[in-house]
Nucleic acid binder design. Structure first.
Lengths: 200, 200
DNA sequence: GTCTATATGGAGATAGAC
DNA sequence: GTCTATCTCCATATAGAC
């Protein structure tokens, strides 16, 4: 891949993620990549096409990372901890990604959510579900719908980052600092979840 | 307020919430309101100004509803249930609102998150925090950081709606239907939360 | 492959008649 | 207040020279 092509991809990714599809112009992308506007269309035919490539790349990368994780670990605690860490680590690295993905998934052109992406999540969830069901059968945790548990965990990991601008300003006048909140978030979620699912 | 002015406001609100600021044109708004483009600028001076009015209205309304709620109720369970119901009911009524608000709050023009809005949330949270602290002191629930609890509850209520297009397609091939999920969500969250905070 | 120049369309906004 | 017509700008995209 040529130097220019790569520079365009890098710039496009940064700006699309930052401003969304509508908020981004190929002029901004070209300027940021230090190339000329015609180059963007030469390599990628159209803005829409360029965006598709970026989007597939963004969640294709996430998905591959998720599948490569090793979840065949001994304890239930460790399994859940791996899930929580995986999400939190990736979101902390690119806090704007969740909002970007959610926004683009909600743009009507439904073909964006491609089958490969969905199969990845399904595969991931099927494995998680089996682990949870085993723990319930072994009476290590209370009976709980694995789907709900999965959704609860994902919600608590991702949502605080979406609302960060609000959280920062709501709690800034209090004894509350945001960066330690993020650092401590993993422990807090583990604590909350394990307390909820244990047999009492 | 004139008929035309009101029609513009209604159309603008629907389209802005649906497509976001960048994705909306005043031509679309005018067409939807069955008025001509010049009328939009005559009544609202600019697209930006119209948007500001819509945005303030949207969350001003939410805020007023929240403050009017009666949270001085007897049991802890009922207090939390009121919070959960309030969020879920409002989100179910306008599922696109959370993504809209989050997107616009993250658009750099930070002045959108106005002080009135923040004070409202703070006031709401301060009250919630005090209730939780009292319950902890009375040893009715285990010690837990009220801020974390608040964030956890809000996350579990709102996030599933943001990810609904993904959830629908991830679970459609399974024994899982989305509308009962939403209906049952309140119970599930209550269950999850109460199990987590009770003294074991 | 890379550039300049330009075609084409759509956006926000306004002038000016009625 | 309401309309038509139009200004100006900026977007995507491409033609064509080198």
């Amino acid at each position: 891949m040529s130097n220019i092509e790569q520079r365009i991809l890098d710039s496009a990714k940064a700006i699309f993620v930052e401003k969304g599809y509508e908020g981004t112009s190929i002029r901004d992308i070209a300027t940021e990549a230090k190339v000329n506007v015609a180059m963007v269309n030469y390599y990628f035919r159209s803005k829409e096409n360029l965006f598709q490539q970026i989007f597939m790349d963004v969640y294709g990368t996430l998905l591959n990372k998720a599948i490569e994780e090793e979840f065949e670990n001994p304890t239930l605690y460790r399994k859940i901890e791996l899930l929580v860490s995986f999400i939190l680590d990736n979101v902390a690295k690119s806090p704007r990604l969740p909002l970007f993905v959610l926004t683009e998934i909600n743009r009507e052109s439904g073909n964006l959510v491609n089958d490969e992406f969905l199969r990845g999540i399904q595969q991931f969830f099927n494995f998680f579900e089996k682990q949870i069901q085993d723990e319930i059968n072994a009476r290590n945790i209370r009976p709980i719908n694995p789907t709900e548990l999965f959704i609860n965990i994902v919600s608590m990991c991702i949502f605080p980052f979406l609302g960060l601008p609000v959280l920062e300003r709501v709690f800034e006048s209090r004894d509350y600092d945001v960066s330690p909140f993020i650092d401590a978030r993993k422990e807090q979620i583990m604590d909350f979840v394990m307390n909820s699912i244990k047999i009492s």
